[in-house]
Amino acid sequence: MSEHGRSRWVFPPWVNQLRVVAGVALVVIPVYLVVLVGFGASPRTTDVGYAPEQPVPYSHALHVGQLGLDCRYCHNTVEEAAKAAIPPTQTCMNCHARIRAASPKLLSVRESYATGMPIPWVRVHDLPDYVYFDHSAHVRRGVGCVSCHGRVDTMEVVQQVEPLSMGWCLDCHRNPDPHLRPPELVTSMDWVPPEKPEVYGRRLREQLGIRPSTDCGTCHR
């Protein structure tokens, strides 16, 4: 057998370098995967920032930020019911029968009002169907709207700003103090506690007897 023929069956010298490459890969690939899945699959990546286009370009920045409407003018079920209801078209028409009554942006509102068909608003904050969140329980105990929904009064298009994940819920259920405020100020968007949030919230929690549960059955039935 010729010299050349035999070398086909022997690893060339550069293969030794592959050991280094393999060694590096063995460290880098697991780290890479952990980082990718850890960040990529986090609700802060997949859910936060969801800002669907709505059938009517309703601006919270105008109605809440500039005009100062209270959240409850439209979402008037929030203190009594689990769901902060999307208002019926009648609520829009309270004003828009006479203000911007011919605006093309409001066409589908007028159509809905005339035909009785609901406006197909797109839900922004959507929890899994096995979670039974109750707005009234939170709002009446002084968890501000802004704590979960962010500065809605500055949003032209509403977007999700918090992950709404189970870990995120539990963070607050385990330590609610920094998120509590006097219940009559829940809808204020720019309220700041008069002292350190933990101290102020703790006093409120003790006054109002707030004991958030972390039992499974509190949210899952």
Partner: peptide, 26 residues
Amino acid sequence: ARVATSPRPRVHLIFDMDNQPKFKAQ
């Protein structure tokens, strides 16, 4: 995805029973 907003539906990696065939309020 972490810094920008998006009008596209959320990425749903694990479905579990997130969307059940039942009717909720509204």
